[in-house]
Design a protein around this nucleic acid. Structure first.
Length: 814
RNA sequence: GCCGAAGUGGCGGAACUGGUAGACGCGCCGGACUCAAAAUCCGGUUCCCCUCGGGGAGUGUGGGUUCGAUUCCCACCUUCGGCACCA
């Protein structure tokens, strides 16, 4: 027997898989599409090719590998591709630093990460490999953008946007975390800029409601998306400016508190502010305040005490015609609702703080037991016994009834309506950076925004020398490229110089995999509908409100465009946990990054794969310990030795129905069920380890060889190289385990022959009993009563009750 | 504040439908082999008490349901994650 040498055997099998394209899955013929063969589509979130495979990839792709191997061996046709999310800042920044070209950087990185993926032994269909930066791919990203544009779902407008001063580009709302840039952590600034948006807000309701179509998504992701969309039911109420009659609509979720509105607030950015104060005595003070606000960062604006300034003007409350003072204050945000609010200091904490500071009346309009504003401060009504007070004809109504009645009365007068507000903003997709997909639009003085005709796609990203961001797109400097002719009128025109957010690229790649070389369309609908929705999507939680929301939006639009027949891209989603080092997130700045390849060199890919999945439930965070690899390493060595020992026994020996044979069948059942139904990847490893420990204890058991073969077979999805090698050893050279049917448990052998029954007195364990499985209740009880240890605890006390659970326990209550 | 998830040995974790708490692994302790070490193998490893038979406690805390609760119910504490001047 040779020593277990992972480096040699792993290289050997990887070569076979590459030479034979072992994991290639051809697309179905039209007849096969009609046949509805059992097929499944497993996709892991595609990596950003930084050049180095990290722990997140190792875990993500090993989970996918296990699922893929098991399903494949169960006879399913499994599509399982891989690609690269190649556009984006890191490559561009690296190119700026090293003086190279982002394309060179990224293609070098892709070559390197591809190599590392092969080294891990992952079973991808490499014939479908794609990268989002290739013109063959982004041609179709542009094509899709144009379909969105034609439908009015991609549009350009001037709007207040978030600007990252470090990366010198605008960001989508989803890319701003706590007022900081998701990428670099710099505090974002507010700017008014003309930018491209996708009208994702049109799909807010569908994004919420169609969560019902999803088979299995983690609850936390759905919650995060719901929070992000932030749907709230309320009313639009129209106030009028006293004197001018200008309408100032507000959004409120609490129309029942309208009688408590004692002032009115406009956001400093509200378009009517300037006109409202023009020529009035407060004009200078108000404009000063607006200017000061503009200079404040978002974070600053939120952390300071609430302040504001009176405009000198009044708004008329539609329910009682009362004129209330209009203030401008920056705690009201232009980006939500209408940028104006009715302030009800008795029932809103923010309004309360503001009213106290400026001595504005606080008028309680909801009352209930123990609910007094003068004593308790502002409160929000929430129980049915709280009723409206000081509310004219609506007084004494319950709060919910008051909501309905007041809204109805406003609707009647044409001064309000039921409405819904969303927190979700349109997706800002343009970026002022070089390394991205060009937006296929031409600006013409006479024709305006003109789409590049389909037959001229792709608009190829030009080669330029200077990528350094200067606050406008570097593409603007490529004068030869920018200057073009208008496709409509033929006159001189200029190309759009912004590029797309990389999340656009990744919003449809999972469909391109089904038809990766199509040069007529982004993909064929037949193939898309055959493979999708994705049966199992696997990736990190960090994309909960980014990629996962965008891809859902894209799918809905593609569905309405008739490009696909489904509404949701991913039927099932699994979020793997994060692998930490000493409890902390791995990061270059902390210097605690663990490189999986270092351990692949030391122990081999099989040990690293096994350890990665044995650390704990795959959807929870796991802490990496170098010494932990010793467990799987010893296990594989033991398996290696045992397999060689068992290989000398005759292949056809009958395993019989003894304890080891039964245990083997139970292990098959547990491993299969854990992986398929429970999505547990760590417990199957423990189960196979137990089986191997058992073989080691009873190497001469008639079932030992069968048990060994089964252990090798069951561990194959985790440790495919050694399993393949040992399969060859055990079956004298016939090494095709990856094509061998997944073992099936014999139901007749799933039950154990003998069981240990626990004997309890008053619920406390007193003795154990070995009996044949299925022993009757009476017999069990008699045996229990005969036990000396049980009798010692009965001691002549009266037996009040006996509980007998066959094959489990007997409990005697005294 | 709102929403979500989770609290089990020295550590990671297991116990899926209420039925032997601590599987499996790491680490540690002891032993075998060895001149020695590594590797490997065997045994031990929740805590407390005890005469080596055993007894008691124990799954964040306090209650409850039950013959029986890590599992179900109520209240609370802690940790992690998301959202948040969102009207």
């Amino acid at each position: 027997m040779e020593k277990y040498d992972p480096q040699t055997i792993e290289a050997k099998w990887q070569q076979v898989w590459a030479d034979e394209s072992s994991f290639h899955v051809p697309n179905p013929s039209p007849e096969e599409i009609a046949e509805h063969r059992e097929r499944t589509y497993v996709v892991e979130m595609l990596p950003y090719p930084s050049g180095e495979l990290h722990m997140g990839h190792t875990l993500n792709y090993t989970i996918g590998d296990v699922i893929t191997h098991v399903r494949r061996r169960k006879g399913m046709q499994v599509l399982r591709p891989m690609g690269y999310d190649a556009f984006g800042l890191p490559a561009e920044n690296a190119a700026i630093k090293e003086g190279g070209n982002p394309r060179t950087v990224i293609e070098r990185n892709i070559a390197s990460i591809r190599e590392q993926m092969h080294r891990m032994g992952w079973a991808f269909d490499w014939s479908r490999e794609l990268s989002t930066h290739e013109p063959e791919y982004y041609r179709w990203t542009q094509w899709l953008f144009l379909r969105f544009f034609e439908r009015g779902l991609a549009y350009r407008k001037e709007a207040p946007v978030k600007w990252c001063p470090n990366d010198q580009t605008v960001l989508a709302n989803e890319q701003v975390i706590d007022g900081r840039c998701e990428r670099c952590g710099a505090e974002v600034e507010a700017k008014n800029l003309t930018q491209w948006f996708f009208r994702i807000t049109d799909y807010a309701d569908e994004l919420l409601d169609e969560m019902d179509l999803l088979e299995q998504w983690p609850e936390r992701v759905l919650t995060m998306q719901r929070n992000w969309i932030g749907r709230s039911q309320g009313a639009r109420v129209v106030f009028r400016v006293e004197g001018s009659g200008d309408e100032l609509p507000v959004f409120t979720t609490r129309p029942d508190t309208l009688f408590g509105a004692t002032f009115f607030v406009l956001a400093p950015e509200h378009p009517l502010v300037a006109a409202l104060v023009a020529g009035f005595e407060h004009e200078t003070a108000v404009l000063d305040y607006v200017r000061r606000t503009a200079a404040r960062s978002e974070v600053e604006r939120e952390e300071k005490e609430k302040d504001g300034v009176f405009t000198g003007r009044y708004a008329v409350n539609p329910v009682n015609d009362e004129a209330i003072p209009i203030w401008v204050a920056d705690y009201v945000l232009m980006g939500y609702g209408t940028g104006a609010i009715m302030a009800v200091p008795a029932h809103d904490e923010r309004d309360h703080a503001f009213a106290e500071r400026y001595g504005i009346e606080i008028r309680q309009v909801v009352a209930g037991p123990g609910r007094d504003v003068a004593e308790a401060g502002a409160f929000v009504s929430h129980t049915a016994d709280e009723v409206l007070v000081n509310s004219g004809q609506f007084s004494d109504l319950s709060s919910p009834d008051g909501k309905v009645a007041i809204t109805a009365s406003l609707v009647e007068q044409g001064l309000g309506e039921e409405t819904i507000a969303y927190r979700l903003r349109d997706w800002l997709l343009s970026r002022q950076r070089y390394w991205g997909c060009p937006i296929p639009i031409i600006h013409c003085e006479t024709c305006g925004e003109v789409p590049v005709p389909d037959e001229q796609l792709p608009v190829v990203l030009p080669e330029i020398d200077d990528y350094v961001p200067k606050g406008r797109s570097p593409l603007a400097a490529a004068e030869d490229w920018v200057a073009t002719t208008c496709p409509k009128c033929g006159g001189p025109a200029r190309r759009e110089t912004d590029t797309m957010d990389t999340f656009v690229d990744s919003s449809w790649y999972f469909i391109r995999y089904t038809d990766p070389h199509d040069d007529r369309l982004p993909f064929s609908r037949e193939l898309a509908d055959y493979w999708l929705p994705v049966n199992q999507y696997i990736g990190g939680i960090e994309h909960a409100v980014l990629h996962l929301l965008y891809a859902r939006f894209f799918t809905k639009v593609m569905n309405e465009l008739g490009l696909v027949g489904f509404r949701e891209p991913f039927a099932r989603l699994f979020n793997q946990g994060m692998i930490t080092a000493s409890g902390a997130k791995m990061s270059k700045s902390k210097g605690n990054v663990v490189d999986p390849l270092v351990f692949v060199e030391r122990y081999g890919a099989d040990t690293v794969r096994l350890y990665t999945l044995s650390m704990g439930p795959a959807d929870e965070d796991m802490d990496w310990h170098d010494t932990g690899l010793e467990g799987p390493w010893r296990f594989l060595n033991r398996l290696w030795r045992i397999a060689h020992e068992q290989s000398v026994k005759p292949v056809s020996a009958d395993p019989g129905d003894g304890a080891l044979a039964r245990r083997t069948h139970r292990t098959i059942a547990k491993v299969t069920d854990d992986i398929e139904r429970r999505f547990f990847f760590h417990t199957p490893i423990a189960a196979v380890m137990e089986l191997v420990n058992e073989i080691q204890r009873e190497p001469d058991d008639p079932a030992a060889r069968f048990a060994t073969e089964t252990a090798v077979s069951l561990i194959q999805p985790y440790a495919p190289h050694i399993a393949e090698e040992l399969w060859g050893v055990l079956s004298a050279g016939e090494a095709r385990l990856w094509e061998t049917a997944w073992p099936e448990a014999d139901p007749a052998l799933l039950v154990v022959a003998n069981v240990e029954v626990v004997l309890q007195v008053n619920g406390k364990l007193r003795d154990r009993l070995q009996v044949a499985a299925g022993t009757g209740e009476d017999e069990l009880l008699a045996a229990a009563l005969a036990s000396e240890r049980v009798q010692a605890h009965l001691e002549g006390r009266e037996i009040r009750k006996t509980i007998v659970v066959p094959d489990r326990l007997v409990n005697i209550v005294v």
